[in-house]
Simulated scan of single mutants.
Amino acid sequence: MSLLQVDGLRKSFGGVAALDGVSFALPAGQMLALIGPNGAGKSTCFNVINGQLRPDAGRVLLDGQDIAGLDARRIWRRGVGRTFQVSAAFASLTVLENVQAALLSHHRRLWQLWRPAAACLREQAMDLLAQVGMADQAGRACGVLAYGDIKRVELAMALSNAPRLLLMDEPTAGMAPRERQALMALTRRLVSERGLSVLFTEHSMDVVFAFADEIIVLARGQLIAQGKPDAVRQDARVREVYFGSGASFGSAA
């Protein structure tokens, strides 16, 4: 059984179908890229899976249990982590304090935030930072970090609830090519070590084709292609949607 099974999702806004019967599956231990041109329905699909939007119809099965319509907090507690395109870290807090805050939320101990940060789940937070290569910067404020390092901190925060499924919304947006490759290589390593499943949206085609096990393509709310990267790269309908011609994907976009 797939860890995530999306079945017939529909969502409309003002009569416009943002999702029109979208179905796909994500097995455990794989990275699935969700791509498509602007307005394809990617963000809507993400937000329905994550609980920020309620679908008009369809199911979202997490390990066989329907989570469609649950709020984001309840879905998070069922083992779904998420990183966002816009930074979700607190700039004024240190790297360590940001991860500690995420851990306190996971353990339902937010009432302890008034205590000295060093006393709250420090060892567990440092372990997460070590996993993403940020332990040596634990005492620095997030507001002074390079953008790629902030993304690593956010990844550590997303791992605080020991997720089975990780949703990554444009994880490499704003990054230089070397930073993009490094972050996704780190994600791939965590998938292998933790048995995570990852669903990610991405505009950088070099990232998509280098790291996705499979790719699904949306256009105008409908799924138009799904398969291994090489098959999707050669799909005529996908090329038409992206380029309006028979051109093939290059190594980067």
Rank of each mutant, 00 (worst) to 15 (best):
R54I: 08
Q112C: 10
R122H: 14
R237F: 06
L121E: 15
Q124E: 15
R164F: 02
A247W: 09
Q131W: 07
A118E: 14
Q181W: 00
V22G: 09
V132I: 11
A219G: 08
V22F: 08
Q30P: 02
A17C: 03
M205Q: 06
D7Q: 14
K42C: 02
L218C: 11
A119W: 14
D20T: 03
G21N: 05
G143F: 02
D63H: 06
R188C: 01
I35A: 01
G244W: 12
W114R: 13
G39I: 02
A68T: 03
I35F: 05
R140Y: 04
M126E: 14
A28M: 03
G143N: 01
V232M: 10
V132E: 03
V153A: 06
R74S: 15
L199P: 11
Q30W: 02
R108Y: 02
R189T: 05
L166N: 09
G244C: 11
E154C: 03
R77K: 15
P27G: 06
F90P: 05
A88G: 03
M168E: 09
V153M: 05
G29H: 01
D127M: 07
G69C: 10
N98K: 05
V238C: 12
A88F: 01
A68Y: 11
H203A: 07
K11I: 10
A225T: 13
V198I: 07
L32K: 08
F249V: 11
G79C: 06
Q234E: 15
S197D: 02
A156P: 06
V191R: 01
A173S: 14
I224K: 07
G41C: 01
L167K: 10
M175R: 03
T83G: 02
A212L: 09
S192M: 06
L145Y: 06
T172E: 00
A17M: 07
D136G: 06
R78H: 10
D235W: 14
G51T: 04
A57N: 04
P55W: 01
R82Q: 13
